[in-house]
Design a protein around this nucleic acid. Structure first.
Length: 257
DNA sequence: ATGCCCGGAACGTCCGGA
């Protein structure tokens, strides 16, 4: 079973790229982020034609997450618990193909310090508490998405230059580690402990892609029941080199049946 | 020191992204 995550940076602008990649990579489950549309604007027909069921938590202009699956999808929640006044579409949790998955678009948090950074840290605290509850269920769970966190300096092309960025701040990294301490396995680094310059995002600016100046911020976190089945995890750089590319590229993992 | 590059909303240019 192949599960992928990809921040597409607008599902409408990226539809040709997404369709081409789904055909080629053929994941069983795809967790998408930054749809930048309400549910009514989501291209259900085009994706269903490829054999995918689609669950969407949409928002006008910003955010928006989806779960695509070749299996039936049962939506668990379209909001991250813990703050009823939070209207940003950044979390969708569902059952599909015998596992529980969440598509996560964690807040960026820049600039630091400030309200946006406070929102990021509060959002991460809510995610930790929810993830703690999921861990107690003893299920196969994959929390995948754009975490907007570089877990260590090995996940940034220029650690010194990014030291004060919200993606690298110690407060962000500490909360990411709290997720791991709950018992979640970050699939890519676990299978590739020494991988260098393994990025999942390259800025559109400053020729970042051409110079391979990136960061690794898209992650797949697996509960023990899922991690026990983990046999592969890779970053697919192909889509980032295409015309009209998203600034993120897909990350996928394979669970044995 | 600031903007560069994108998409969305809107039709001016700004906001948000990371």
């Amino acid at each position: 079973m192949k599960i992928a995550t990809w921040n597409v940076n607008s599902i409408k602008a990226r539809l040709p790229n997404v369709v081409a990649w789904l055909k080629k990579a053929a994941p069983d489950v795809a967790l998408l982020q930054e749809l930048k549309t309400v549910e009514d604007g989501f291209p259900f027909l085009e994706l269903e034609e490829l054999g995918y069921n689609c669950a969407v938590a949409g928002q006008k202009s910003y955010n928006g997450v989806a779960v695509l699956s070749k299996h039936p999808i049962e939506i668990e929640t379209k909001v991250l618990p813990g703050n009823d006044s939070d209207e940003q579409a950044r979390y969708l949790e569902a059952f599909t193909g015998g596992i529980r998955v969440a598509s996560i678009y964690l807040p960026n948090g820049n600039p630091t310090p400030g309200e946006k950074f406070d929102y990021k840290l509060a959002w991460m605290a809510r995610l930790i508490e929810h993830a703690r509850g999921l861990m107690a269920l003893d299920e196969a769970v994959i929390l995948g998405g754009d975490y907007n966190v570089c877990p260590t300096d090995a996940d940034v092309f220029d650690p010194a230059g990014w030291a004060d960025d919200a993606l690298c701040r110690p407060e962000s990294r500490a909360r990411f580690r709290e997720l791991l301490w709950l018992g979640y396995t970050e699939a890519f680094r676990t299978l590739h402990p020494d991988a260098a310059r393994a990025w999942s995002f390259w800025d559109y600016q400053r020729g970042a892609w051409q110079q391979d100046n990136g960061v690794r911020i898209d992650h797949l976190l697996l509960s023990p029941m899922a991690a026990d089945r983990l046999v592969a995890c890779e970053i697919d750089k192909g889509p980032r080199g295409q015309q009209k590319a998203s600034d993120h590229t897909p990350v996928w993992c394979e669970l044995e049946d």
